[in-house]
């Protein structure tokens, strides 16, 4: 950080890249680290606020967590390392991605089961309808429906 700052001062001194003289609040010399930091501040939750990630929050503890994240990422720790570090101190609440356990696994299981069950029910019912209702009856029903359709179409035209 200091080195970068010195570099920036020198750069502006020599009238090189004058536009870059503005200091980033959290400056990285490595694009990958910057990306990790951006992801982390989006995914870590401010433990004190209503419902905000630490990138958006200006609460004290959010600033502290952001600084700590910055420090750890600068040191070269991976994304998971930082998450583990924060979870060890602030609990699972601090991470917006829930851990997979006996309860949270249902977040994935229930939707998948529902998907298959509903599709299964539809096919089954369609078959039931097919076998239960005689073809003659269906033909009549179709005729009534077609009649209705043409009626409404006629009405549309009139309107």
């Amino acid at each position: 950080m200091l080195n970068l700052y010195r570099f920036l001062i020198m750069a502006s001194f020599f009238w090189l890249l004058p536009l870059q003289a503005v200091e980033q609040t959290y400056a990285f010399d490595d694009v990958n680290k910057q990306a990790i930091f951006d992801e982390l501040t989006q995914e870590l939750r401010c433990p004190k606020c209503q419902n905000q990630n630490i990138a958006d929050s200006n609460a004290m503890v959010a600033i502290d967590l952001k600084n700590k994240t910055y420090e750890l990422v600068q040191k070269g720790e991976s994304k998971q390392d930082v998450i583990d570090f924060m979870v060890a101190r602030y609990g699972q609440f601090v991470h917006y991605d829930p851990p997979v356990n006996a309860v949270t696994i249902w977040l994935w299981i229930i939707p998948v089961i529902l998907l298959f069950v509903l599709v299964f029910i539809m096919f089954k019912r369609n078959k039931e309808t097919t076998t239960r209702v005689s073809d003659d009856y269906l033909k009549q029903a179709e005729e009534v429906l077609n009649q209705l359709d043409s009626d409404s179409a006629k009405k549309d035209k009139e309107a």
Binding site: Q42, E43, R45, N53, G91, Q92, F93, V94, H95, Y96, D97, P98, P99, N101, V103, T104, W106, L107, I110, P111
Partner: peptide, 24 residues
């Protein structure tokens, strides 16, 4: 619905607070 209510269920079952947010 699950993502909104599961943190509540998780806590009421005595498993502690979790957050389900944007990443999920």
């Amino acid at each position: 619905l699950l993502g909104t209510l599961l943190p509540l269920v998780h806590k009421e079952l005595g498993l502690g607070s979790i957050s389900i947010g944007a990443p999920f």
